[in-house]
Nucleic acid binder design. Structure first.
Lengths: 236, 236
DNA sequence: CGCCGACTTGATAACCTTCAAGCTCCGTGG
DNA sequence: CCACGGAGCTTGAAGGTTATCAAGTCGGCG
């Protein structure tokens, strides 16, 4: 919060001083290289539920999420939304270049107000050449993502609703878990609808499920908020 | 085994003469480069339902499928198999290197008897440096795959069984469709069980579905074989 | 204060899995 | 060559899970 304010005011300078350089793609860069990279970047501040880019847009930039969370969403012809995955701070997104793709294949929507850097896609190959860690980082990002999608696919194919919801919530805990005196909270606003779009079910089923878990003391669920008290007791 | 020997000795020459060089990663290479690549390759001939490699194996090689079809499969702790995607001739697979991964994350199982080339993973980065088309080809392969998995995810999340089955079959038609006097056939043996593992349902539901489509004249389905007569009439 | 978005909960019904039984095809071994 | 067995497939019936429909609560914001 405080930090966010600071960033707003001083922008890129603040980014340098903050622990940005510890974020993944910058990991193996020295201060000078990091500075160069940041000099080339554009800063994006995006309000909750607004998008960084939309499915089908020309992929003119690639992004690094600094703060906040976002969901990668695809919309069907019928208008159903499906959340393909979530992105946490430090991860890159909109990396169409890694797929030789001209357009973004999905929408990047802010789950909470967020801050990101972007670079023109033309710089992609240059970064790969100039900064050895960058190539590795992008590969790892792609790998993580593929694995995550596979897990999701398997979950959808083999489990029924309750376990799918449990899986989704556990994954979010890993990415965005925040200790509270009450248990581990998911650190951004999350509606029943959101969860249903992640798990391919209805908000009604999600509601019933959370209600049941709450009765059993496994979670505390409020409006737009989920806190897990006993992660290990959720149905695998 | 014996067979692999034979192929090693006599096979490569034949590969060169065949239209191997038209297959994707070789596309932009001249004859000399292609020869060099093939000289470094190992030939694999794999019987139906045998595997090229298994989930968790050390990713010592990456592969190019020359002939036959294969499925990329993951198995859950409970023993459920899920077919994540299918690979057609000309596509690379086992490309753990593209994900900075040390092990294969899934099993590659021959859907029909098949032939593949492999190279040691150490050569990956060399190929990328030496052969400009290779980088592009791998990126495109990864992109196609991600898109395909997303589509599958969306299908699973929003459609019910009948449409999921229709989607799966249409995708297979694109990858492995073969014109016959009777309609477009899927060009490798495919059981109800296989289809159920692709769509997250049971072989019973698949059977009922195909029976119904057969009654309506949309498909002809036999033992391990599916022929589609009216692709456009399948439920989107 | 009233409205809207988020959420809950019951009732009903559709969809699909599960269980059960039996069929056909094909390879194998007697 | 035929019998046998197993793999692949079909179909009915029953039952459970989950979506859909419907009604209403809660809480924040203009």
């Amino acid at each position: 919060m405080n930090q966010r304010e600071t960033m707003t005011q001083f922008g890129k300078e603040a980014l340098l001083q903050a622990n940005i350089s510890e974020l993944l793609p910058f990991a193996s860069l020295d201060e000078d290289q990091t500075r160069k990279m940041i000099d080339l970047a554009t800063v994006h501040r995006v309000k909750q539920n607004k998008t960084y880019f939309d499915e089908g847009d020309r992929a003119e930039n690639f992004f690094l999420l600094i703060d906040g969370f976002l969901r990668i969403v695809r919309t069907t012809k019928e208008g159903d939304q499906v959340v393909v995955l979530h992105i946490a701070p430090g991860q890159m997104f909109g990396i169409a270049k890694a797929f030789e793709s001209v357009n973004y294949t999905a929408t990047a929507q802010a789950a909470s107000e967020g801050l990101a850097l972007s670079w023109p896609s033309e710089l992609w190959d240059k970064f790969i050449q100039d900064y050895p860690g960058f190539q590795k980082a992008t590969r790892r990002a792609v790998g993580t993502r593929v694995t995550e999608m596979q897990d999701k696919l398997i979950s959808m194919a083999t489990h029924q609703v309750e376990r799918r919801i449990a899986h989704a919530i556990l994954r979010l805990l890993e990415q965005a878990g925040k200790e509270t005196e009450d248990g581990v909270a998911i650190d951004f606003p999350l509606t029943r609808q959101d969860i249903s779009e992640m798990t391919g079910t209805t908000l009604h089923s999600v509601s019933r499920c959370l209600s049941k878990w709450q009765r059993d003391g496994l979670v505390r669920s409020e409006r737009r908020r989920v806190v897990v008290r006993q992660p290990e007791s959720l149905p695998v």
